[in-house]
Design a protein around this nucleic acid. Structure first.
Length: 419
DNA sequence: TGACCTTTGAAGTTA
DNA sequence: TAACTTCAAAGGTCA
């Protein structure tokens, strides 16, 4: 049983952010330890074979109209997938009629996909993280944090995405941000610990949002592979001698255009305009009423993204690897593989990501004390997904991602709740 | 152009 | 409090 939060409060020194589900998940993991041991012993080839087998079975189900429940999920170590995943796999099979299975088949055919599947899992980011000082640890000099009254009061371009924390650890150039910058530049919400500032950098996914006005050698700085966000293999930026390495590693440093003395303001990628469209030019704006402008302004408030959970961090790290190994590109297919790999991970391996995710949540809380996941509710339009699900499965997906009407598998976390 | 697909986990909402 | 819903990443796909 991994001691995520109970062993001295973890690396973060706080149990408050330890997600209950982590422990629950591990409890569940513990019950499946035998299965996982068998999985591990069998090696990646077995996993792939099962995955492939499941896909074949799913195709058979699709073709025959009625398959054998559970057969598609494989046997033995895949029991966890079994009934619980049946609904999802039915769904996926339904939604990716042949393409998904085909793409997965193609990917699995690649020898490197099977051979390298579980090798060389890189946890360098986590290892670095483990040496990371606690956010509000002893010896620090916490600065007063002005409360976050509302998002409108935030700097319009100062919203980091927490995942860069993770990415930053993989960076060959962990550039600690100067602690004094936040003070000099009127940072809205300084970090408690200057060390933390070094873990915020621009993410891969939104690099294109950076304006070209930024005066540094842009190409080498950003992750070239938007799919993985890795930075560790990127060449060092080639700046002129004496040119300071561009530092935008902290949201406090990513100041908006309204900040005096900062012509090269950098909107952080985590600040996602809801529409993704350019704002109206000033002369266009005159055409709008004040009310409309106000409403528009409200709608265009920067979005603070949710911190990534353990699985998301795992996906972010492993996605590129899976893509390279399996020559897959469809995220849906890749995510299926990653989901299975995630289940195949040992508890210790998963614990690393849980801990990493806990760190991200800690940082997120420190940076945005007033932020709530609720803030982003409704920002994504779910057009007719519910309708699709209901019509196709006869019911809504429950909290465990299953469809109770079809998959009556017990809740995986039930044992822990009993305990 | 933007929702959908797919995955798990966290957190919010609802009954 | 259990059950349910939404969002987080990612990129191809499709309406």
């Amino acid at each position: 049983m991994p001691q995520l939060d109970s062993s001295g409060g973890g690396a973060g020194g706080g149990d408050d952010l330890g997600a209950p589900d982590e422990l629950l998940a591990f409890q569940d993991e513990g019950e499946e330890q035998d299965d996982k041991s068998r999985d591990s012993a069998a090696g990646p080839e077995r996993d792939l074979a099962e995955l492939k087998s499941s896909l074949v079975n799913e195709s058979e189900v699709a073709a025959g109209g009625a398959g054998v429940p559970g057969a598609g999920a494989g046997a033995g170590g895949e029991a966890e997938v079994g009934a619980e995943a049946l609904g999802r796999q039915h769904t996926s099979q339904r939604l990716f009629p042949d393409k998904l299975a085909e793409s997965l088949e193609d990917g699995l055919k690649a020898p490197e996909c099977a051979s390298g599947m579980y090798k060389d899992t890189v946890y360098s980011a986590f290892n670095l993280l483990m040496h990371y000082p606690p956010p509000s640890g002893a010896g620090q000099h916490p600065q007063p944090q002005p409360p976050l009254h509302n998002k409108a009061s935030q700097p319009a371009h100062g919203v980091p995405q927490l995942s860069p924390l993770y990415e930053h650890f993989s960076s060959p150039h962990p550039t600690p941000a100067p602690a004094d910058i936040s003070q000099k530049q009127g940072v809205h919400r300084p970090l408690q610990t200057p060390d933390l500032s070094g873990f915020y950098s621009l993410t891969s996914g939104s690099m294109g949002q950076l304006p070209h006005t930024v005066s540094w050698p842009s190409p080498p700085l950003y992750p070239l592979s938007p799919s993985c966000g890795y930075r560790q293999h990127f060449p060092a930026p080639t700046a002129a001698p004496g040119t300071p390495y561009p530092r935008f590693t902290h949201p406090s440093l990513m100041l908006g255009s309204g900040v005096p003395g900062h012509p090269a303001a950098i909107p952080h990628p985590a600040i996602v305009p809801p529409s993704g469209k350019q704002e109206l030019q000033p002369y266009d704006r005159t055409l709008k009423t004040q009310a409309e402008s106000k409403a528009e302004k409200e709608a265009k408030k920067p979005t603070i993204k949710k911190p990534l959970n353990a699985f998301m961090l795992y996906m972010k790290e492993m996605r590129a690897k899976v893509i390279a190994e399996c020559t897959l590109k469809e995220s849906a297919a890749i995510n299926q593989i990653l989901g299975r790999r995630w289940h195949a991970l040992s508890r210790e391996e998963q614990a690393k990501y849980y801990e990493l995710a806990r760190k991200e949540r800690q940082l997120h809380m420190q940076l945005y004390p007033g932020w709530s996941a609720r803030d982003n509710y409704g920002k994504k339009k779910r057009r007719s997904r519910e309708k699709h699900q209901e019509s196709n499965t006869g019911g809504k997906r429950n909290a465990f991602g299953t469809y109770p009407e079809k998959a009556a598998a017990p809740a995986p976390f039930l044992p822990m709740t009993v305990l």
